[in-house]
Design a protein around this nucleic acid. Structure first.
Lengths: 342, 342
DNA sequence: CGCGTTGACAGGCACGTTTCTGCAAGGTCA
DNA sequence: TGACCTTGCAGAAACGTGCCTGTCAACGCG
């Protein structure tokens, strides 16, 4: 390449990177020759020399040998989408790396930093990364004393309390919860918030748990919840498919929604705008989380003394639809789906 | 590191990579010291030396400035999940790279090969990659004469014809199509297959198109389709949300499903197992496609003279539910969701 | 005319591997 | 006892950048 342009390697490097003091004529000449030859500087060599690869790890939890769980599809897809976009805008690319990934793969890719989704307490991957001096930003408040560089999360407790109040306002007497058996922070915080709310208002807790990563178990758990002797007249489901699951269970027991059963579930899916009836959902705003996580990470990588807090709480959004309102605004003809959630 | 173990650089390399002729004692010693120091060989240096990075690009189309479109969520998520898993099993990691990505990002990451999803005709990114001598495997039959190394696709024509026959068998007299305005291969092949089928059986085509990347347009198009004077008595929707969209539209016009309207849509979502009524869906088997694409790509990277064909057609699966059967198997109490689609 | 200054490049080292070659010590065998 | 092979390792050359230093000519200036 240098030979083809009749200049030295230094001149090529300077010309392409806009450094050094070269006349514009030389710069143009070098770039022209580079274009003609289809020359691309070696990313590996650049990484070796500069110590920066422009790559960010996106660590997802695994269930079985597959990355990320089925129920988190929509959330993860949106979050990853926003994260990819945000990273790209700043010149970085994302590498998907499952948490239980083989050691050789992890050490075989040069990362500038990593985003971890819902790290478990004392996550060995995170400790290893931190020990290497890499910045780590987590989606979800890190459990225990995990030494992450920064984190972003929703205020899950406030969200659950808000939903329970909303349901109580709509006339619910006994609110049930469909929750998970796993010990991640989201499930844990949401469930304890529910239990505390029950204690405060003097209601006996009515809840069923199931392994959230099993796509079939949700329907069974929804059925169990409505089959109980102390059947609730309102239910909040923590996971994405709970809406359709609970709706189907309600139909099986002849319960009308929202007349006999008020329904809310946590979901990023737009299908709930068009179900019969439309279901009120809680959005965790994965787009904002994905963007925020990446911004914090890149700031840390580039040593920007960001004036943003290293702990960011993203507000949730309750999208109120017919299923949680005792007097639905329109019962006859509803207009085509309104443009919500972008 | 070499100094710490009291041996030469060569010995360290050989010991860690299992090469050279070293006694087991030396190997163990070197590995022990490496563990103690937390030493990790530099991925950048290895890549520079060997020319292999262990990274595979996953190119997704973009709409606006966000990677992959909303309607393809479930398909993409499943496909990416399987691809990630398959790549990892062979020691590779995936890098998400949107097609319209900035040039500097593309050239800044050392890829061993790339998976492209639905490349457009004369895709500049693909041409560039092929020119660099990188293997490129596409998900979706490449349009035009795109010089990909291999490709994997469904037989979309056969799938559409199968669905139309299925609907006709169920008693449909006039089958409508909900399709897209974009020019990608999937939309194009499916639509022409529909038109050819109509011609063959002597039915006037009844279809509506909409920009599939717009999450709101689908509901409007579904409404348009059922508002036509030549209203169809069965509809196939090409995109994931069409099922709920069409169901909602049918309710607005007082049509019962499946009595007045038979419904099928192409989707990977399990929500259609629990809608009222459950909707027949066509699965494109993204898991199998994602796995196949990665296997073919890694075979090409590693120079394996694979005896697999470089063109693979993955069969689709029609999951028949109530919405496309004139006599639904059970109309009263249905059991909790059956475990389908894994 | 000598001297400092500036522009325009070339030389060369370092990044951390992998790998080829080299080389000494020790053993085998005629 | 030398020729020859095996074992166990060390030396050194790349890989392609980025960057620091060096060189040489031109130029302004007192």
């Amino acid at each position: 390449m240098a030979a083809a342009a009749g200049v030295s390697i230094t001149t090529v490097s300077d010309a392409l990177n806009g450094k050094g003091r070269l006349p514009d004529a030389t710069r143009r000449h070098v770039r022209e020759v580079a274009d003609r030859l289809g020359y691309r500087p070696s990313a590996a060599a650049r990484t070796l020399r500069t110590g920066k690869s422009g790559l960010i790890g996106l660590t997802v939890t695994t269930y079985g040998d597959e990355p990320f769980t089925f129920t988190e599809f929509a959330y993860f897809a949106e979050m990853a989408r926003a994260a990819t976009s945000a990273a790209l805008a700043r010149g970085y690319a994302l590498v998907i790396l499952p948490a239980t990934s083989r050691h050789d793969v992890w050490s075989n890719v040069a990362l500038d930093g990593t985003v971890v989704i819902d790290p478990s307490d004392q996550d060995p991957v995170v400790s290893e990364l931190v020990r290497q001096g890499l910045p780590v930003v987590s989606d979800g408040r890190p459990a225990g004393s995990l030494p992450v560089t920064a984190w972003v999360d929703n205020d899950h407790e406030a969200a659950v309390l808000g939903i329970l109040d909303h349901l109580a306002d709509a006339g619910a007497r006994r609110i049930g919860l469909l929750t998970g058996t796993s010990t991640d922070t989201y499930t844990h915080l949401s469930t304890t918030a529910y239990l505390r709310w029950c204690e405060r208002v003097g209601q006996d807790p009515v809840y069923e748990s199931y392994p959230a990563h099993d796509p079939c178990a949700g329907a069974v758990a929804a059925d169990r919840l409505l089959a109980r002797p102390d059947r609730p007249d309102a239910v909040y489901g923590l996971f994405d498919p709970n809406g359709t699951d609970l709706l189907a269970a309600a139909r099986r027991y002849g319960m009308r929604v929202p007349e006999d059963l008020l329904l809310v579930c946590c979901s990023e899916s737009t299908v709930y705008a068009n179900t019969e009836p439309p279901i009120t959902t809680l959005s965790l705003k994965p787009r904002r989380i994905g963007t925020a996580v990446v911004q914090l990470l890149i700031d840390a990588i580039e040593g920007v003394d960001s004036d943003l807090p290293v702990e960011q709480v993203i507000p949730t959004e309750l999208i109120i639809r017919t299923s949680s309102q005792r007097r639905p605004p329109r019962t006859t003809v509803s207009p085509p789906r309104s443009p919500e959630g972008k």
